[in-house]
Write a protein that binds this DNA or RNA. Structure first.
Lengths: 143, 143
DNA sequence: ACTGCAAAGTTAGCCTTGCTAATTGGCGTA
DNA sequence: TACGCCAATTAGCAAGGCTAACTTTGCAGT
């Protein structure tokens, strides 16, 4: 395969990523949650109760940074923490019932820019193709 | 098409984007240029001399922010500015010959994390599929 | 020619996000 | 029981991009 081609696509990937990121940031204030908050919510919904440190590892982020995100989510009633049954150092965080319901119902979808852009801007075929590319990128990240 | 499916893919898109972004940031110091700087360099290489305001528009960014990026690139000798021949308000920025050569030779590819990840982590088919998805995302951004 | 407004760019100050360093308190093993 | 490890928190910092306000230049209407 052509190295030139890889450079071209990487250029475009970088440009699109930065553009989407800035757009998410710009639309942020009107959205219910920030990107990082949504990542945490999705993680808790998919994998159940987690500690701050575990969430930080999943997101390739420092525990201190994740701690700040969790603190914000707690203050607005999205997550609650309970002490680990046997290990007093740990706190296990879960979505509140209300937030879990909202997530499962996809209720925040309408208030989040990326969700509505994806659902109204991409065809069914484009959606599946994007999903395959994302899977490839994820594997790329793991190396 | 399923709205649920769109939500799933958007979730994954957001997660992958934030992961790549953090990774680029983390690898940044060892890279030659930041993501924003590379975006500007690619733009100048593809579309020729531009003003700060034009570059800012292309990148969906404020002129003040782009001004700072250009100032940095000028200080390290990557771009040079010259007055617009007829409009005294504008300054036209171009890549220095050395930088243009480097860009065309893809010489910075080896020193940039994203380039090397893409070229070694994706197959030729995955590369083309990704390129199609990026085109779809770009159209999505323009709405 | 003169007045007045638009457009390019700059300076100053702020906010957000994630980082490192250092501390506290619980855990577990020699 | 003492010592080192691990979860979490607090404090301070840097990068990136934002708004607000100002200067200079160009242009259009009278």
């Amino acid at each position: 395969m052509s190295r030139e081609r890889a450079i071209e696509v990487a250029d475009e990937l970088r440009a699109v990523i930065t553009a989407i990121r800035r757009r998410m940031q710009a639309e942020g204030p009107t959205d219910a949650y920030t990107a990082s908050q949504l990542n945490v919510i999705a993680n808790l919904a998919k994998h159940g109760p987690s500690t701050v440190t575990l969430l930080a590892n999943v997101e390739s982020m420092r525990p201190q940074s994740m701690g700040a995100i969790i603190a914000t989510l707690e203050s607005i009633g999205v997550v609650t923490g309970s002490p680990h049954p046997t290990d007093g150092r740990q706190t296990l965080w879960t979505l509140t019932p209300k937030s879990a319901d909202e997530y499962n119902a996809g209720r925040d979808a309408r208030s989040n820019w990326l969700y509505s852009a994806v659902s109204t801007g991409l065809s069914s075929e484009q959606l599946e193709e994007l999903d395959r590319s994302l899977a490839a990128l994820r594997r790329m990240l793991e190396k």
